[in-house]
Design a binder for these strands. Structure first.
Length: 261
DNA sequence: GATGACCTGTGA
DNA sequence: TCACAGGTCATC
C-alpha cells in the first residue's frame, strides 16, 4: 500500500512529467472519489485552462499546486496509483492490483498536448480534495528530528506502533514501514509509547531514518527486511526466531518475540 | 485510544 | 466461497 515512500515516488513522477502543461479537460466519473463536497464541475472549473506549477508531499498526502488556482490534494488510500502518460512510478504495488484496468481511473486530467495524468484506484479508498487542510497532520516522517520523536512518545500510553501510525502525530508512516522500523529499533510494537527509555527513543529515531533511506533505495515500503516473513511461519531475519503475529493499533503486526523488547 | 465500517481485488 | 489486506473516518 502506498506509504510515504510510494507517495514520494508519485510526487517525483508528477514533478517530472505533469508540470507546465496546459490542462484541457478533467474527467471525474466517480463522484464518491471527490471528497469534502467537491463535485466534478467544481474540479473542472478549478483546473481547465490552468497548469500545474509544483508537486509537494506531506506524509501520505500529495499536493499539486495549480498556478493562480486552489491546490489539489490527492490521497491514494491503499491501492491508489498515479499514472502520467502511461508512465507509472512503481513497478508493482503491494496488496494493490497490478492489472491495468482503465475502469479504475477515478480522476483523469487531460492535457492540451494529448497526454494525461490519472489516479487509478481499484478499491476507491483514496480521494481528491480541493484546498486540503494539512493542519491536522503531524510533522513529515522523512524529516523527523530526535526532539520530535521524544515529543511523540511522551505521555502516550498507547502502543508505540499506534502512535507512529497516527497521522496527526507523525505523517507518512503506515503498517509496513512501522513494523520494519520497530524491528530495526529492537522495540516491541505493543510497548506503551511513554515507557521507552531515552536510548530506545534514540534507537527509534535512528531506525525510522534508516528504514526510510534503506527501503527508499530498494524501491518502496514493501522491500522491508520483515516483508518476506509476513506470513504464517515467518522467521526473524536477525535471529531466526518464529515471528509473532498480533493485531496492534487495528493492524496486523509482525514482530520478533526474542530481540524486540 | 480502540474498534468497526468503508471499499473491492486477490489468493487459498 | 471467503478471509484478508490497510488508510482513513465516525463512533464508542
Amino acid at each position: 500500500m502506498p506509504e510515504l515512500l510510494e507517495i514520494e515516488a508519485y510526487r517525483r513522477l508528477f514533478e517530472d512529467r505533469a508540470l507546465d502543461r496546459r490542462i484541457a479537460e478533467v474527467e471525474a466519473p466517480d463522484a464518491w472519489y471527490l471528497k469534502e463536497g467537491l463535485g466534478a464541475d467544481a474540479l473542472r472549473d478549478a483546473l481547465v485552462g490552468g497548469h500545474f506549477s509544483a508537486a509537494r508531499r506531506h506524509g501520505k498526502l500529495l499536493l499539486v499546486d495549480v498556478a493562480g488556482r486552489p491546490t489539489v490534494g490527492i490521497r491514494f488510500g491503499m491501492t491508489g496509483r498515479l499514472i502520467v502518460d502511461e508512465h507509472h512510478a512503481l513497478d508493482r504495488l503491494e496488496y494493490g492490483s497490478n492489472r491495468p484496468n482503465p475502469a479504475w481511473d477515478r480522476v483523469v486530467v487531460r492535457f492540451e498536448d494529448g497526454g494525461d495524468a490519472r489516479v487509478r484506484d481499484p478499491r476507491r479508498l483514496g480521494g481528491v480534495i480541493l484546498e486540503p487542510d494539512t493542519d491536522r497532520l503531524g510533522p513529515d516522517a522523512a524529516s523527523l528530528s530526535l526532539r520530535q520523536v521524544r515529543a511523540l512518545v511522551e505521555g502516550s500510553r498507547a502502543p508505540v506502533k499506534a502512535v507512529l501510525m497516527d497521522q496527526a502525530r507523525v505523517a507518512g508512516l503506515g503498517n509496513l514501514l512501522v513494523d520494519d522500523a520497530l524491528w530495526r529499533a529492537a522495540i516491541d510494537p505493543a510497548r506503551p509509547a511513554r515507557s521507552l527509555a531515552d536510548d530506545e527513543v534514540r534507537a527509534l529515531h535512528r531506525a525510522v531514518r534508516t528504514t526510510l533511506t534503506t527501503l527508499g533505495r530498494r524501491g518502496g515500503s514493501h522491500t522491508g527486511d520483515l516483508q518476506p516473513q509476513r506470513h504464517d511461519g515467518g522467521l526473524c531475519p536477525t535471529d531466526g526466531t518464529p515471528l509473532r503475529r498480533r493485531r496492534i493499533g487495528g493492524r496486523t503486526t509482525y514482530s520478533c518475540p526474542r530481540h524486540q523488547r
